[in-house]
């Protein structure tokens, strides 16, 4: 009985891990589906547009790069608290963009802070395309 219990617990743990884990490409694919459905004339994401978006201020004080630096492979620092921020690029930190809920949470918060509104699926996808385009 006890063996079965442990086995079941292990299976449950594996299932939970599989449910929340994704690859950056999967996260991007999911964004693409949303963008396709909501953006008239959607023709794919653009790393070039994403880079421009990432490095610009949008009428406010900050850009994405204010905390994340101009290089997604580099560690950043929180503009207010000085706490270190791990690199955004999956090349530099493989944990990045593997948890869809976390990706949504940070886009929600940071778009509010930087752009003053929620980002569109196109903007998110462009930024992700840019971050993923940066190689070693």
């Amino acid at each position: 009985m006890r063996k079965v219990g442990i086995g079941q617990a292990l299976l449950a743990a594996l299932w939970m891990a599989a449910a929340s884990a994704a690859s950056p490409t999967e996260v991007q694919r999911s964004l693409e589906q949303t963008a396709r459905a909501t953006t008239p004339g959607f023709a794919g994401f653009s790393a070039h547009r994403g880079e421009k978006f990432f490095k610009s201020t949008h009428g406010g004080e900050w850009s994405c790069a204010s905390c994340h630096t101009q290089d997604p492979r580099a560690s950043g620092r929180h503009a207010k608290t000085e706490k270190e921020i791990r690199p955004l690029s999956p090349v530099a930190d493989p944990r990045r963009f593997t948890d869809p809920a976390k990706v949504e949470k940070w886009f929600r918060r940071n778009c509010n802070d930087v752009v003053g509104r929620a980002c569109t699926p196109l903007e998110k996808g462009d930024v992700l395309a840019y971050v993923m385009s940066v190689r070693k």
Binding site: K80, A101, K105, R108, R109, N110, N112, D113
Partner: peptide
């Protein structure tokens, strides 16, 4: 938390 000292720190 959505206006947490000048930043959005909202939680689920």
């Amino acid at each position: 938390l959505d206006k947490h000292f000048g930043t959005d720190a909202s939680l689920d």
